[in-house]
Nucleic acid binder design. Structure first.
Lengths: 345, 345
DNA sequence: GCTATTAATGTAAACGCTTCCATTTTGAAA
DNA sequence: TTTCAAAATGGAAGCGTTTACATTAATAGC
């Protein structure tokens, strides 16, 4: 029933070594023999058992992807990018969320030590130092995503959150002349969030605008936190002219809240976000936001991982790449963008 | 460097057989010995190599998930559901899209024959008969998702699209008294789409409303197709009072189009969708739609798959389960739903 | 026609586990 | 003590490959 290399060898009248060579195009085998073997393999739908082969070659042809959550367009895009490249390279992709509740590090060790994958792509918004330490001692290559600049001697691909935040805030200042700019922060301890905040502060500083503490409120990247954040900001005696939401989901919450209290965006208050999620194009007015190349993040990360797997040199070397983000102008910032109505096509 | 069962055996002063038994709690081994071995295993971070073990036990502890695309909230939810259960069961999940361009069936055979997974979850909107045939001969269990009722002798978990569509259209008729109801269909050849259409037709028939051909237009589940579909429907001399979009994304397109021509929903035309995507809660007015338990679809499918893997009886038996959907009332249908403004919290 | 290469093939040892079967220990019953 | 069954352990055969090494066949150079 189960067809294996022995069967093929028997049918071809050769040894299993020859079969292996013929099918792997390694070593030299008479063309005529190779042809016959390949023929047989096709006929009987024979495929080398991946585990046996993996055991022998110390190679799994699989890469692991660990993401913090599995419930977001953001992560879906990463997976998409990874999958696409993996498919091209004939590799398999193992996905897992770090299941917040469990100790991420444990998941990690499990995965890597296990020999189930040749390498990993890893996104950990928290505990980055601990994880980095693990990775440096790892026998298998690991590519990190969106990691602090302070972390050295690892390989990482990142969204340039700092530059992005700087740019969009600069837009608010330069183009629209806003001075009172509020911000709804991302979750505490989250690196992306921290960088966006830093970009915000530096942009203000660049234009000599003092930072007003009470125009900065904590958020958590959820629509709900944006909703409440808006309420808090608009309750200050000196209301903001514009609000920078650290991500689009929170901007969505702002829209919802603004509608309830009958405030118009951008007339009463301008709003900008970050991420350029699909939804942002559908809001009225269309949200001004920073596009982040997430798909590309995924595909670049895995391509580099492949290189690390193949080439020990690359594996050894630290590397960091920060992908630039791009300003997407809607009307929520006050710009008069005509075709923002249906540019989702 | 690489620690394996031999090392542990040596350190423990026993044979590898004993180590294996100790760590697998199989066979009998002296408690004291077991303790010592477990101790050592922990100390040296030893874990049985999954491939070696897999080779020996003919078990991979991995399940494969093949989805048509990897770019949608819908699929993300499935993955999420699957991942959650897999985590509980200590299994791994291999993900792949069927990469439309490639012959799905080939991907399939590759995956299953390969012995890389113990079983699979499979979603194929097209070519279901061909795939079903493959599956019946498969040596490994496969759970299908959203498959035609005509396909027998397979295991499947499905969304009850028919009942859902019937219900929502019935709502339009019974509650609002609409008689002129248009529909924007899903892609041709797509089973979900076909069922939703069938539900639509039957609901009309039930209330003796004749089906008007020119109020049925083809769509493709994209916002864009909804956008154009709306245009087509509203160009008829007898305009629809209500439109049933076969999924929410198309409803989004409708909203966009309606806004452009200054038609009010639901005043000028009522709109309902299907899927209850996150976005639908944010539209103004909130979209009336059918909630489909996707996460549950994923987790149920994998739980059943586990059973099939463990139990040959279950494996042999065909099984079908259709998950019910639930009506989510917004204002887009004409209902006066007060709290539809911010019920996304 | 004979040797020196090179090409083609085979043998068998890994790879790291599980598990069947055989052997040794143990402890209780006789 | 002796006897036996049960418990504990070890030996070794898989699982299905790849690959280093050995061997044989083929081809060229002389």
């Amino acid at each position: 029933m189960k067809i294996n290399i022995n069967e093929i060898a028997k049918k071809a009248g050769v040894s299993i070594a020859t079969v292996s060579r013929a099918l792997n195009s390694s070593g030299s085998v008479k063309p005529e023999t190779r042809r016959r073997i390949q023929e047989l393999a096709r006929e009987y739908h024979y495929r080398p058992h991946p585990f046996a082969r993996g055991l022998s070659k110390r190679k799994t042809d699989t890469i692991g992807v660990i993401l913090p959550e599995l419930n977001d367009e953001f992560f879906m895009d990463i997976i998409h990018g990874v999958d696409e490249e993996a498919y091209r390279a004939n590799k398999y992709v193992m996905i897992s969320s770090s299941h917040s509740r469990r100790d991420i590090i444990e998941t990690l060790v499990e995965f890597m030590g296990s020999g189930r994958v040749d390498g990993m792509i890893l996104m950990v918004p928290q505990l980055q130092n601990e994880v980095a330490e693990l990775i440096r001692n790892s026998k298998r290559p690991v590519v990190l995503m969106n990691i602090s600049r302070n972390i050295e001697n690892v390989v990482s691909f990142n969204i340039d959150n700092y530059q992005g935040a700087f740019t969009i805030v600069e837009h608010l200042i330069q183009k629209h002349g806003y001075k009172n700019i509020g911000m709804i922060l991302g979750p505490e301890g989250n690196w992306d969030a921290a960088e966006r905040y830093r970009g915000f502060r530096d942009a203000l500083a660049q234009y000599s605008i003092p930072l007003k503490e009470n125009l900065i409120v904590q958020g958590s990247f959820t629509a709900q936190s944006g909703y409440y954040g808006f309420g808090r900001l608009m309750s200050q005696k000196e209301k903001p002219e514009a609000i920078f939401a650290a991500n689009d989901m929170m901007a969505v919450g702002i829209y919802q809240a603004a509608r309830e209290v009958n405030l118009s965006i951008p007339h009463d208050v301008a709003v900008v976000g970050f991420d350029d999620i699909y939804l942002s194009k559908l809001l009225t007015p269309r949200l001004t936001t920073m596009h982040v190349p997430i798909f590309e993040l995924g595909s670049k990360a895995i391509r580099y991982l492949f290189k690390m797997i193949e080439d020990p040199e690359t594996f050894k070397k630290p590397y960091r790449e920060d992908l630039t983000t791009g300003l997407m102008i809607g009307r929520s910032c006050g710009c008069d963008n005509n075709n923002s109505q249906h540019n989702f096509f």
